[in-house]
Design a protein around this nucleic acid. Sequence first.
DNA 1: GTCTATATGTAGATAGAC
DNA 2: GTCTATCTACATATAGAC
Lengths: 228, 228
Amino acid sequence: MQTEHPFDRKRQRAPSKRALATRERVLDAAERIFAARGFDGATIRDIAAEAGEPVGSVHHHGGGKELLFHQAVARRSVELSQARRDALEAARASGPLTLERVLDAFMRPFFALAEDEPRWSDYARLVALVSADDRWRGIAAECFDPTAALFLSELAELAPDLTRRTRAQAFVFSVSAMLSLLTSQGRIGALGAEGTENPGAGRATPGQVDHLVAFCAAGFAVSADGRR
Amino acid sequence: MQTEHPFDRKRQRAPSKRALATRERVLDAAERIFAARGFDGATIRDIAAEAGEPVGSVHHHGGGKELLFHQAVARRSVELSQARRDALEAARASGPLTLERVLDAFMRPFFALAEDEPRWSDYARLVALVSADDRWRGIAAECFDPTAALFLSELAELAPDLTRRTRAQAFVFSVSAMLSLLTSQGRIGALGAEGTENPGAGRATPGQVDHLVAFCAAGFAVSADGRR
DNA sequence: GTCTATATGTAGATAGAC
DNA sequence: GTCTATCTACATATAGAC
């Protein structure tokens, strides 16, 4: 049998164009189903049905449920990290960095991507799943920690009075708030109540992102203010 | 067969003392297992083993997996809500309310409970699960929304310039940050890095709670500041 | 690479003796 | 109320023809 799985050491030959397309469809389906039902709630069969592929094909390309999940998370993480780094460089080029501008560079690219491509909204749910469950700390460490560390070191220069731990804590608060805006429009609606549901069901408006960034920047600033 | 399940209309007779104790042990076990593995990751058999009860007993007292989960969440929600309302009244009695004091009344009781009883730390994970998954919106609406609405109306008086929606959003950011501190000490540690892990693995220090409250209060204040 | 068929385990739920 | 045994369904994973 041919146990050549993704994430194995290099293949002998490049896969065919058709095979690559199948692989992409499997990953797209996995992204949607994992996002909607969580890792344990999702089944390979659901994913196969969503991809319009036989069950065996999902195993072949996915390499098992855990690896499939890992792949789905890792796939877009490079583009996300790059968008964040680019935004940071753009901010640096256009004037002196501030807490607010650094946080904006970290957060806004995710919303910008989600606005164009609904797939990125599903991906946001995946990121939230990974962030919330210690079971996936390894994946988070691989896919997100390096960029987080980069931004954290920028924030350190802008808020030098904070201890390392307090800074990490403020950053975790900020990321949690960001993920809640990416994934929990429903909760905001339920509490905000009455008619004015936002149109794009699940997509944040630029104004909401402004608010998020301002909220977190203020939180960072007060953390430095001696207050503690 | 006797289909008398919890949450059914009233029973004919009060259950025996022994039966009540069994029920409590089942709920305790469910709380721990659901907290550790999530709803779909947990199994009735895991819960039975944790409770030291036969599988059938868990079904009998739990009334099925979904109802068991519902019961586990609902059980402590009354005490939590009461602690929050008491803290709000205490704050009101001891001086003029501020954003910071209201948020403190909402957040600190949860940490205070978790500090004494580790069960409350498990419960915090349950609350986070319920908050993160739209599948449980009904439970959240029943167990948490009323108290959230009470605090939100207090916050409305202290930040009258915010729109209803912006206020709800700031509140969701705050709750997300609170839950991240209750459940994600690991992430804070991973980003804060180096030695100084806090001792009580998973319990927040009062200083961390101070920081959380200050962070969120500052966020609320800036939301009102015209900034948007 | 793709697809059908199947192996093996384990899930939630229930029946019925005690 | 408690406990054992069991029903039925569906999970992941694999084998092997094409």
